[in-house]
Write a protein that binds this DNA or RNA. Sequence first.
DNA 1: CTTCCGGCATGACAATTGTCATATGAAAAT
DNA 2: ATTTTCATATGACAATTGTCATGCCGGAAG
Lengths: 200, 200
Amino acid sequence: MRVIVAEDQGMLRGALSALLDLEDDIEVVGQAADGEQALRMIETLDPDLCVMDIEMPKLTGLDVAERLKETKHGCKVVILTTFSRSGYFQRAMRAGVKGFLLKDSPIDELGAALRSVHGGGRAVSPELAMQLWEAENPLTEREREVLKLAGAGLGAGEIASRLFLSHGTVRNYLSEAIQKLDAKNRIEATLIAERNGWLG
Amino acid sequence: MRVIVAEDQGMLRGALSALLDLEDDIEVVGQAADGEQALRMIETLDPDLCVMDIEMPKLTGLDVAERLKETKHGCKVVILTTFSRSGYFQRAMRAGVKGFLLKDSPIDELGAALRSVHGGGRAVSPELAMQLWEAENPLTEREREVLKLAGAGLGAGEIASRLFLSHGTVRNYLSEAIQKLDAKNRIEATLIAERNGWLG
DNA sequence: CTTCCGGCATGACAATTGTCATATGAAAAT
DNA sequence: ATTTTCATATGACAATTGTCATGCCGGAAG
């Protein structure tokens, strides 16, 4: 099978590509260091399958998966990510992703996952299966934007002017977010949202 | 040469070990998933050299390097890390680390670095060489502790009781840290300190 | 067509946060 | 022995933050 490896960390990308290429039934036909590159490569090289990191520059792996679904491209996607954040997993399922592995599974599982997915099956790290039932993102779009900026160290006034809101409104959103996430303050709120993948 | 690979992310650890092992002159004699394991393995297996991540559970790669220096163990250390934080690099140099690579260099560089270090030389990612002249950590021990807790979402009162300080004192430290780092508030201060490796 | 809800806004209030001036005792430097 | 420095503390003050009640508007649901 012909695969593309999309991963921004050079060393991991190189190592995975090299190892997969050693397998008899796998041929690595391209490597991408960011989401845009991955998308272009998939369109031009038309591989069977793409191993994709989530956190990448320009387009995240999930963005790419969603575009592939829109354009009905046949390339299957196996997500390979560091974090077991419930939001990621759910979004991936909706985007039709066929495999979802954590970066700290052993490498053997990657080869196995690729074969399983190529054969029409699925492959999911066991730690993740449960997350199907985990909490949905309780934050509204606005709350997320505001929280993201707050997490970057901006104050209410600054956030207000970037989003063209009044500073009171910003504080309202922040307050709501804090309560929804059961946090003590904006800092904890950002931490919680982040940990669950509700900001990306 | 006999090497140990210490890296908490299973997939990268496995991939690197497999690839290094393919080289004729390299033998991977052990793999560690955290700092303690790495230290024990180095003591029992006495390898020539250890490839080590910084951010690992229990003991960081830098902690391990420092202990090896104390005990005058001959095992040379090549640090392999994601972030180019000036604090890390400086601490590593002081700990007698011989090689320091970023995880997004190409893999070829890893093999090359190992050979160079094994032959008594050094190997440093070019992005890092400059950092020798970069700012030293301006924060005192106390300021760091306080800032770390603030970054975890705790308020002044909570920080105070954990560190057995008065809440006024905590606010003083925070205020100093904020000014030293030229930040607007504690959040930005944590971000800046973090980015420079001044909290780890 | 109402009713309800989401996004947006105000104003008021309390709590927390950030800044400063100042003080003490202990340790380090001179 | 004297001075400086550091960690700790206080109190006062202003700014920011978090909460709440309330109101308006437009669109979705009934």
